[in-house]
Amino acid sequence: MIVGERKPLDEILEMVKDAKKILIVGCKGCVTVCNAGGTKEVGILAATLRLARLKEDNPIEIDEMTLERQCDPEYIEILEERAANYDIILSMACSIGPQYISEKFPEAIVYPALNTCFMGGAQEHGVWAEFCQACGDCKIHLFGGYCPIARCSKSLLNGPCGGSADGKCEVDKEIDCVWHLIVNKLMKQGKLDQLTQVKPLKNWTTSRDGGPRKIVREDLKI
């Protein structure tokens, strides 16, 4: 899933400082699962903003709603009748949501309430980690099922570098050295030969380096 994190309160307060009436829009997709922008987080942000503005003696009116998804035009349409009623629309989806909303309603002023952080998964309750960088050419099977592009700090295809210690990355002791995991797994599986081959240069054209990407499926078009 796409993992996001709510922006600091100060930053959001600054965004809405001149607004009297706003709409906070959550998303029932990834950001609900990672507890960043679902119905509950919309409620918490709304209550927090109301309190902060009450304290400044400058109350703000806030409506709340959560869309099925914000990355599909059809789910955005529901805002059609309401978009014009607000000084600001604050989206709690990943950055795709506010982009969709502001494109669909050119008159609306739309702000992102989240920072979209990475593609990853939950490791335990309240902990998420990055697993994928969407390079567009998956090769994890060559690395014991781990992705060195996303999970090695230097994206080494022929790691590990000399800086890891006790299975941790030199960049941060909180980061597992993915090459430590790869080497240990492949050695255990008796597949050392997979490691001793020099992995060729990566073709980055399928990644962001080839420009913004698009997938067209003719069979699905209506």
């Binding site: 022929n158 590990p160 570098c161 210690a165 490691l195 020099v198």
Partner: peptide, 18 residues
């Protein structure tokens, strides 16, 4: 001396292969 120690010499072999 870096971790994992048993693998270090294979990484040398890989640099030689390169």
């Amino acid at each position: 001396f870096a971790d994992p120690f048993e693998y270090r010499v294979y990484r040398l072999a890989k640099k030689i292969a390169a």
